[in-house]
């Protein structure tokens, strides 16, 4: 059982770039681990953007900005998590301590991966997103509240809020710390019945 998810308020890490791909979130060379060590992956989140070629910290990258240390919400441009299906990207995000990613659009394999790791992807309108980036730029201490039971996100700087979508099943899982494998393995007779029935149709 994972840590259930309800309501969270935090400052936000702004990443106003579009099409951030999972190769940037966690470069392939850090995918050789055979364990789900979230701390290891978290330490390598955005590794090649966090570091300069000589290995020193890149002071221009937002994760190295003292203003955003301890934030648990990442705000990113549209089409976040495109490319590779690597769940290591979601492990890295979770391992770094991020619990919510806000964007106007997510790549769908990555979105599923986040959900399966109890990181909540929150899809907002382009308008809400650009206003949020502006709020954070004006004041890095801008707080955002995400409330899963009411499916609401609030930009505390402007007071503007939006509702976001999540299917009822996944919401139930997040609120209760349940995962899909518990669900799928709970009744195998359904699967066996399906197999038996289909044999007749397809051989």
């Amino acid at each position: 059982m994972k840590q259930p998810f309800t309501t969270l308020t935090s400052t936000c890490i702004p990443l106003p770039l579009e099409n951030v791909d999972t190769d940037q979130i966690i470069p392939a060379r850090f995918m050789k681990s055979t364990t789900r060590d979230e701390k290891f992956f978290g330490d390598h989140l955005f590794f090649d953007w966090r570091h300069r070629a000589d290995g020193t910290d890149n002071p221009d990258f937002v994760l190295n900005d003292p203003a955003f240390q301890g934030s648990t919400i990442l705000v990113a441009g549209k089409n976040f998590g495109s490319g590779s299906s690597r769940e290591h990207a979601a492990w890295a995000i979770a391992g770094y301590g991020i619990r919510i990613v806000v964007s106007s659009f997510f790549a769908d394999i990555h979105k599923n991966n986040e959900l399966n790791n109890f990181v909540l992807p929150v899809v907002v309108s382009e308008t809400f997103l650009s206003e949020l980036f502006a709020s954070i730029k004006a004041d890095p201490t801008t707080l955002v509240t995400v409330d899963l039971p009411t499916q609401t996100i609030i930009n505390q700087a402007t007071g503007h809020s939006e509702t976001f979508e999540i299917n009822a099943y996944k919401k139930h899982c997040l609120l209760n710390g349940l995962d899909d494998i518990d669900f799928l393995t709970s009744d195998k007779s359904l699967i066996e019945a399906y197999e038996k029935e289909r044999l007749g149709v397809r051989g």
């Binding site: 789900r36 299906s85 690597r86 769940e87 290591h88 979601a90 769908d108 394999i109 599923n112 991966n113 399966n116 790791n117 299917n167 099943y169 995962d179 899909d180 494998i181 669900f183 799928l184 393995t185 195998k188 699967i191």
Partner: peptide, 22 residues
């Protein structure tokens, strides 16, 4: 289609996956 590792585990365990229909 491609899936994440949690979903690989689902298929190993049940030969099924939970997906919304695209």
């Amino acid at each position: 289609f491609g899936i994440g590792t949690s979903e690989v585990e689902m298929v190993l365990a049940s030969q099924c996956i939970l997906q919304s229909k695209p």
